[in-house]
């Protein structure tokens, strides 16, 4: 069943005198519980699509329906409330608040919810436990490694129990071991908690953890035949040819 549905999704903005169109009439269906990797060259519209799905950007044209809600039609205030209830966002550079401890960073989204202090504490502790960083709860971001920071960011993203987790190059700033650990964590959130996860990545190895991989180019899903050429400069050709996930990139796309 389609959970996220994009129809003719277009986003354009002005940069000086130039009209930039990072997304151009994109159609896409994502079922609930998917773990989808979005790949493509820089400027292909991956992050723009992710931002639209996360509700932090609005489409210029087309529709984006998530669980039956056309989020393009929501007012700023309603969209903020919707994000708070339904979306967890994991950034490439973690984006933790530097003056808050790991615990306080994870608590931030819960401050918007009417929860008794004890329940709030329990949920933060649970989220930190889940990502394996409970022993660093009192540490400030500057006292954590990149991998630990990203775990805190993931805890912050899941603490409100959202339906969707969007991750913008979640391993982009991590070493191989940390990247592996973070990806296993996201995979477990998908398989054990049933979270729908959509991530943008430039790292072909990361796609191994995804259920599906889609390639974007020039604001649209790339055609199967053009895939190798379009992503040659981004990933090794061998990987594109041999990855079973890369071999079926357009599965979720509408014909």
């Amino acid at each position: 069943m389609t959970f996220i549905q994009c129809r003719g999704l277009t986003r354009e903005y002005r940069k000086g005198d130039n009209l930039i169109k990072p997304l151009d009439g994109l159609d896409l269906d994502v079922p609930r519980g998917d773990l989808l990797a979005l790949m493509g060259p820089s400027g292909s519209g991956k992050t723009t699509l992710l931002n639209l799905i996360a509700g932090i950007d609005s489409p210029t044209a087309g529709t984006l329906t998530i669980d039956g809600v056309d989020i393009g039609e929501l007012s700023r205030r309603k969209l903020a409330a919707w994000r708070s209830a339904h979306v967890g966002y994991v950034f490439q550079l973690y984006n933790l608040v530097p003056v808050l401890t790991a615990y306080e960073n994870v608590e931030l989204p819960l401050l918007l919810h009417k929860l008794p202090r004890r329940q709030r504490h329990a949920r933060v502790a649970q989220a930190l436990e889940r990502v394996g960083i409970a022993d660093r709860a009192d540490h400030f971001p500057r006292q954590l490694s990149g991998g630990q920071e990203q775990r805190v960011a993931i805890a912050r993203a899941i603490v409100t129990d959202p339906d969707i987790i969007v991750a913008d190059e979640p391993t982009g700033d991590l070493d191989k071991a940390s990247a592996h650990a973070v990806m296993l964590l996201l995979q477990s959130l998908n398989s054990e908690l049933g979270k729908t996860i959509i991530m943008v990545t430039h790292d072909p190895h990361t796609t191994d953890y995804a259920k599906r991989t889609l390639h974007l180019d020039k604001g649209r899903l790339a055609e199967a035949g053009t895939l190798q050429t379009e992503t040659d400069h981004d990933r090794p050709t061998e990987q594109a040819q041999t990855s079973p996930r890369a071999a079926r990139p357009l599965e979720g796309a509408r014909p």
């Binding site: 932090i56 919707w82 708070s84 979306v87 966002y89 984006n95 918007l112 912050r156």
Partner: peptide, 16 residues
């Protein structure tokens, strides 16, 4: 600027 954008991403409304 980024921090406030993060807060907004987390669902903090502009007036808050």
């Amino acid at each position: 600027v980024s921090e406030h954008a993060v807060l907004q991403t987390l669902g903090y409304p502009g007036p808050l």
